[in-house]
């Protein structure tokens, strides 16, 4: 029990001191996962909307595949991104393995199916005639798609939360493609793994607390937006 108590005490001290290295790690986590989430929104909402509105044989199979992808194990993503970016892999010439860019790519790959799957469900949940109603109001196809996405904005915000929550807390892919290089690719999760394995529980607890606070703050913000959006 002492271990936990001391850990917490030291963690608070560390946080209070605004340790430079801890701040850098936190900032990088936010930057990498934030960028990855943004990318996943672009790809996920576009592909999810297209998938929800399109009609083609085998659609169910594709939707099932996307839904499976929502639970994609980060280590599997990490493995494949590593292979692709390996020196003599298909994209080896880019020379970006063990950089924050590689981490962004891996995290975007993890988050995109989450956003895509939630988008498909949100759009399909809209009343089937809404599409026709919007067209009957004189909308062009792009206007119609835009209005549908806007109409599904509240469940889509849940998709943003799920996507961001998924990537900020994942460690497998980040450690594989980032390498946990001090001052360069070290993020909150990879640092926590390392400190724990070294037995530095106090630092690990401090990092975990920051991670939790960060997740809470982002979700709180998004929830506020979601609630405010609903007019009284």
């Amino acid at each position: 029990m002492d271990l936990i108590y001391e850990g917490f005490a030291k963690a608070v001290a560390l946080l209070a001191a605004l340790d430079r290295e801890v701040l850098d790690i936190t900032w990088l986590s936010l930057k990498v996962s934030g960028t990855a989430t943004l990318l996943s929104l672009v790809f996920g909402i576009t592909s999810g909307t297209a998938l929800a509105l399109a009609n083609f044989p085998g659609k169910r199979l594709v939707v099932s595949a996307v839904n499976t992808g929502m639970g994609l194990p980060p280590v599997v993503v990490g493995l494949f991104v590593t292979i692709f970016l390996w020196r003599n892999g298909p994209f080896g010439s880019l020379d970006i393995l063990y950089t924050p860019t590689a981490m962004i790519i891996a995290q975007a790959v993890i988050a995109t199916p989450i956003v895509c799957g939630i988008t498909v469900a949100s759009i399909q949940n809209l009343p089937p005639n809404l599409r026709l109603q919007i067209l009957a109001l004189g909308a062009t196809r792009p206007q119609m798609v835009w209005l549908l996405i806007r109409e599904a904005r509240l469940p889509l915000l849940a998709g943003v939360m799920a996507g961001f929550g998924g990537v900020i807390s994942e460690v497998g892919a980040s450690i594989m493609v980032g390498g946990n290089i001090k001052g360069y690719t070290r993020v909150l999760t990879t640092a926590t793994v390392m400190e724990t394995s070294k037995g530095n529980f106090d630092v690990a607890i401090a990092l975990s607390l920051i991670l939790l606070l960060l997740c809470f703050a982002i979700n709180y913000l998004l929830t506020r937006i979601q609630q405010r959006e609903r007019p009284r």
């Binding site: 005639n129 809404l130 026709l132 109603q133 009957a136 004189g138 209005l147 109409e151 609903r230």
Partner: peptide
């Protein structure tokens, strides 16, 4: 498209947008 802009349609369900 030009024709559709000259008409309007109302369905059995109001199909309102989630706004004011």
């Amino acid at each position: 498209f030009a024709y559709r802009r000259r008409l309007a349609m109302v369905f059995q369900e109001p199909l309102l947008f989630d706004t004011t």
